[in-house]
């Protein structure tokens, strides 16, 4: 019972981090059709900025979080104009993979040059240390915080996409780019805004998840397969698909590590193959939102 509860809490928290980071990738893939292997690098940059801001300037956790997200978005926006815009679209998969692998390598090398190869931490405020009681059980406060943050992100995205003008345009462009252009939706600006949204989410996830996905220069390469897996299973462009896939994969992976520690990876990838074999467009594809 204790194990199951532990699995549930850790799995859901882990899944929420996967969700926050992957949903950014999913949205850009759904709209711009770009397989962005540098997405993990963006998350890593967010984490490093927060760590630096907190350690060097003594910024509080919340402040470091905001600074990290804003700086990451600002730093990556020029990349959209200079690089990504050239490789949008269906036919460019290979160019996309190569260009974004190249970008990832450059970011990894730069991060190592600037911050060194050692593990970086983002000190948690006292508020997030310790545990909170949940009925008869208690769970680590940080895990609870991550789960709540994930839920808030999910609701926020839902509101953004369903209730705002930006969301309506975005969904229209995902569903039918030609029609959207014909209706006078300015895709260039929309792409830029969506790209910013995607990297912002990556940075947010990188900061919040630093306890679960530790910050070191190879972070960008180590976890990108995981984020891609979430998107592939969830279906490109689907917010709820990403959430469901991230939670499912997070819990599966955690359960695998707890229960069958020697074959965790094996089951994760076997499940991935089965799901993609049966549902090549993603398990949760169907409703775009």
């Amino acid at each position: 019972m204790e194990t199951l509860f532990g699995i549930a809490v850790d799995g859901v928290a882990y899944g929420m981090i996967l969700f926050i980071i992957s949903v950014g990738l999913s949205v850009t893939l759904g709209l711009m059709r770009v397989v962005n292997l540098a997405h993990g690098a963006f998350a890593m940059v967010g984490g490093y900025v927060a760590s630096y801001a907190a350690q060097t300037f003594g910024l509080p956790y919340a402040g470091a979080l905001v600074v990290a997200v804003l700086l990451t978005v600002l730093a990556t926006l020029p990349l959209e104009t200079l690089l990504y815009r050239r490789i949008y679209g269906h036919a460019n998969e290979l160019s996309q993979v190569l260009l974004t692998i190249g970008l990832t390598f450059v970011i990894v090398a730069s991060v190592n040059y600037l911050f060194g190869p050692s593990l970086k931490r983002i000190p948690l405020p006292e508020l997030l240390q310790g545990t909170v009681a949940l009925g008869p059980k208690s769970i680590p406060t940080h895990r609870a915080f991550v789960i709540v943050a994930g839920a808030v992100t999910l609701l926020g995205l839902w509101w953004l996409l369903e209730r705002t003008d930006f969301g309506i345009r975005l969904r229209a462009a995902v569903d039918d780019p030609a029609m959207a252009a014909a209706l006078g939706i300015r895709t260039e600006r929309l792409y830029m805004a969506t790209f910013a949204l995607g990297t912002g989410l990556a940075a947010l996830g990188g900061v919040l998840g630093a306890e679960l996905l530790p910050l070191e220069p190879y972070y960008a390469i180590r976890y990108i397969v995981l984020f891609l897996a979430v998107v592939a299973v969830g279906g490109a462009g689907s917010v709820f698909g990403s959430a469901a896939a991230a939670l499912a994969l997070g819990v599966t992976d955690t359960a695998g590590k707890y229960l069958i520690p020697n074959f965790g990876e094996f089951f994760f990838y076997a499940a991935l193959i089965l799901i993609l074999f049966r549902w090549p467009q993603g398990f949760f594809k169907g409703k775009t939102a």
Binding site: V97, V225, L272, L276, P280
Partner: peptide, 16 residues
């Protein structure tokens, strides 16, 4: 499969 799905499947096979 095609595109991202195929990329993921080839990655998954290698990992297995």
């Amino acid at each position: 499969a095609r595109g991202l799905t195929l990329l993921m499947l080839t990655i998954a096979v290698t990992q297995i």
